[in-house]
Amino acid sequence: MIGVELRLMLRRRRVWLCWVLLCTLPTLVAILLATTRLAPPPGRGGAFLSAVTSNGQIFPAAALALVIPIFLPITVAIVAGDTVAGEASAGTLRYLLVRPVGRVRLLLAKLISVAAFVLLAVLFVTLVSYVVGVAAFGFGPDASLGGTGAIPSLSGVELTPVDVVARTATTVGYLALCMLALGAVGLFFSTLTDSPLAATLGVLAFVVASAALQPLDAASAIEPYLPTSHWLAWIDLFRDPILWTNVRGGALVQLGYVVVAFGAAWANFSTKDVTT
């Protein structure tokens, strides 16, 4: 069932469209920056954007910071909201269940396909923006002087390219986990309704609510448990030495969301009457 689910996802035009759009935004930003050379001053604009004009290798980090607040969550909401509700509204859900595919297996396969989607999404953004970044901004002043293309970290210490690759890979994993948490919430919402659109909007409402509560002082007690609070914690990975506290805490909370949301999806779906 997992293989079937992955094949179904990869053959959907919508999924590819999401990936293409996700890669388009950073490319557009790179082109604008490269043609105008008007990088935002440090401390303004998106994270890392002020540094990219001097070294293209940092552009993947800037690109991820660009897509994480809105763009990426929207695509996750679309794909995750469609998981069960899409099959229900198309009627294929009943044929899968009588095939038979166990209900838990079906949910698990859906979660895995969402995980594959988010991982590939983050990966594509990273790879495309690396190529675009290097093409637009080069390897940095150090490389042109015969060096190894060292990259300044946020703390000012120079990082080697190998180090940057390792840190970027960790970032990809961390962000994929954050988005998977959102995807798991989407999977749960998708078991509650037969309308994929309703589930997608539910996920977006969840993101907006979390983002609205986050800056509120009155909500400081629950702030560490809001999903959006941790979406930018990975920036600490580009400090030297790495500040692991926020990343570790964020990963735990996101993992908690995956477990709780999947549990809720299972509790709801395993005894649900399938009447579509």
């Binding site: 053959r11 044929y95 009588v98 095939r99």
Partner: peptide, 18 residues
């Protein structure tokens, strides 16, 4: 039981893009 049963329930359904 179900692997030994074939069913058509309330009209056919299929993945439209395939």
């Amino acid at each position: 039981v179900l692997p030994r049963v074939g069913a058509l329930v309330e009209g056919p359904a299929a993945w439209g893009h395939l």
